[in-house]
Nucleic acid binder design. Structure first.
Lengths: 247, 247
DNA sequence: CGATCAGTTGAGACGCGTCAAATCATGTGG
DNA sequence: CCACATGATTTGACGCGTCTCAACTGATCG
């Protein structure tokens, strides 16, 4: 499966320079691939995995499981992301990872990765950078769910997901496959399902997006970005502005 | 200043094993120390620093500056923390760092750190682990500000700060110096000042804490932890349970 | 001794959560 | 092919909690 290596390489190139020998080191990594059904857990809170995951296709989400059984979704990850790179250096999972829709995930042994990092520090730095961008996304989520009203909050989430997907060339035109339900949206943004729906139809009637059947259609990017106060600089991607085109 | 090196070493030992040669490498690091006044900014959003900070004394906070001028505080850091280790690999600051009360901060050049990491990968892994714990704290903040009611939210924050401080031996008995105002508490937890005050007096009258004059007094740890649904495992510290003693 | 700023408290409005019912989409077995 | 069950989405009504605004108190300091 050449594909797995290519996906990782392309991803790292979004923000880091990868030398020839680094390329070779990546291609030397072994892995196993696993297909996940919709909502299937990949790792659970408390697990101590010996491998790290790389998303190959589809999306996965990270979430906290709360005492009352509810979930709080923390972030979503698409092809090229490593949603549990933290297990490289933190033994125990403090949250879970599950598939959003059907997903394909590759597992790479920690031992191989850390040995590679020891031999090729720059490669380790690239993955480290990746985990730091993750942290930046978490920070933005704190602000989003704490300081913005419901409409801005939802707009911002859609902006981020669309922007990240487009940076990795995972959108089809103005369409992003996002097989997520209203309930999950609520558990991401910290709002009740009813409110999710009303906010959604508000964005719809403002002609900014369409969202049904697990697909997000971007109708008016600049308007949505304004509503959501979206400034992509926290994503630390090379390409300055991608979604310039409203078509 | 032997002290700076010692603080970093003690901190890393909270979660990582540090070998003899790693110790030597840390002691070889050079730095400059700077004193910050209350509320003084250390780094601003958009800066591209060439050094990373290590808190020596006091506390600093990270915050997003919002378009309307408001702040959203993201996390607080005490002696031993590196509040901007991300600048090692992310050029541009996506948030700001300021002093909470008076603080002492050491600056270590990026070049020295990355060169050390190349020679002693295990040391890099220890700092990496540190940044991953940071991310775990951010994730918990998402959940805290999104899924918990006001009382639990505030209780959880106090639990976390007290627990982390105690792990670094920065508490005096049941007292933690926390020179933070109600307004800032509100900008951390996403609530209005009035609500902050009412929630605070609620916790007070429940005999769990006392909070005045920039000092937090822990009166009933287990009760507060219960109210805040606080489970310290996300902090990934070695010591199992520190605050076992209610006195 | 006023001035300033942080903390405290009250009253009212509004937004969101909760609950409930209705609609719609999808799949399954008769 | 229809009857039915299941689950997601949509909409409405109501109550509560939090925000807003404003006034008041209390400290600290020139």
């Amino acid at each position: 499966m050449e594909r797995v290596h290519r996906i990782l390489i392309d991803k790292l190139k979004e923000h880091s320079r990868i030398g020839h020998e680094d390329l070779a080191a990546i291609k030397a990594l072994s892995f196993t691939v696993r297909e996940l059904r919709r909502n299937e857990d990949f790792i659970r809170q408390g697990d101590t995995p010996k491998v790290s995951a790389l998303v190959i296709d589809g999306m996965v989400g990270r979430y906290h499981l709360l005492p009352n059984g509810r979930r709080q979704y923390l972030s979503f990850h698409m092809a090229g992301d490593m949603p549990d790179s933290q297990t490289l250096f933190l033994d125990r999972m403090d949250h879970a990872v599950c598939a959003i829709g059907t997903a394909l995930v590759a597992s790479i042994p920690h031992k191989q990765l850390t040995r590679t990092f020891e031999q090729r520090p720059q490669l380790g730095f690239a993955i480290w950078r990746e985990t730091l961008i993750d942290a930046a996304i978490f920070r933005e989520a704190i602000t989003n769910n704490s300081a913005r009203d419901m409409t801005a909050r939802m707009a911002h989430l859609f902006c981020e997901l669309f922007y990240r997907a487009e940076a990795s060339r995972l959108t089809r035109g103005r369409i992003l496959t996002l097989p997520i339900g209203l309930a999950q949206l609520g558990e991401t943004l910290g709002m009740a399902i009813a409110t999710v729906n009303r906010t959604l139809s508000e964005l719809r009637s403002a002609q900014t997006i369409e969202f049904r059947g697990g697909e997000l259609e971007m109708l008016d990017w600049s308007r949505l970005a304004e509503i959501g106060q979206f400034d992509p600089s926290y994503l630390h991607l090379r390409k300055a502005s991608l979604v310039a085109s409203d078509e």
